[in-house]
Simulated assay, not measured.
Amino acid sequence: MQAQNPSSSAVEASTPPNIKRYLVKETWKEYEVTLEVNHDVLTQEIASMINGFWSNASDRLAAENGDVIRTVIRLFGQTMIYRMLSEGGASFSITTKNRMTGEHPGPFWTEDIHNEEGWGGTEPGPYGVCGIRVIAADVDAPGYDDVELVEVSNA
């Protein structure tokens, strides 16, 4: 029988989190958000609770072949794109900093979704209960030159 290395539990405790990046895109308008997901936080249980909170949960789950974690990541991205469009759009990269504050805009957008009912809140840390945060976006609302006016008859 070998003696246990006393530092082995310290190494396990300091293991870096299981973080991956995903791109969620709206295929027709080319809107996209880059999300960072802490898979140590977004577990099957958390993902099932989040997906189940919203209507049409089984349809979303079927679209992702039963993978509830992918379902919730995609839902978060779709919700983020919708939120950004409702606020006039957003465009920033992973390295973007606000000129006035020097802060990245991702936490501002992420906090909005984390605080929305059904997403669990902002604690613990930047990934919130859902384990997801936005780190880049390209969601431009249509400008004046992107729309046209056409008169239609009163049928």
Rank of each mutant, 00 (worst) to 15 (best):
R21F: 13
I19F: 03
N18T: 07
I73Y: 00
N51L: 14
R70L: 13
R21G: 10
G66S: 05
V72C: 06
Y31T: 00
P16K: 09
F53K: 07
P17D: 08
D59A: 13
W54K: 10
V41D: 09
R70G: 06
R74Y: 02
S14I: 11
N65G: 05
D67G: 00
I50H: 00
L61W: 07
T34N: 08
N56R: 09
S14M: 14
A63V: 02
T43Q: 01
P16E: 08
E64Y: 08
R21S: 13
D40M: 05
K20F: 12
N38T: 05
L35G: 00
I19D: 01
V72P: 07
D67W: 00
Q44D: 15
V72G: 01
R60N: 12
E64D: 11
E64G: 02
I19L: 07
Q44P: 12
A62P: 03
Y22D: 06
V24S: 05
R60Y: 11
H39I: 00
A62L: 06
S48Q: 11
G52H: 05
E64W: 03
H39R: 10
E26L: 03
T27K: 11
V68L: 03
I69G: 01
G52P: 08
S48R: 10
G66D: 03
E36S: 11
N51C: 15
S55F: 09
W54Y: 15
S58R: 10
N18D: 15
P16Q: 06
D59P: 02
T15M: 14
I46D: 02
S14T: 14
N65F: 07
I69A: 03
L35N: 00
K25W: 04
L61K: 12
N18P: 06
L61E: 11
R70I: 04
T27L: 13
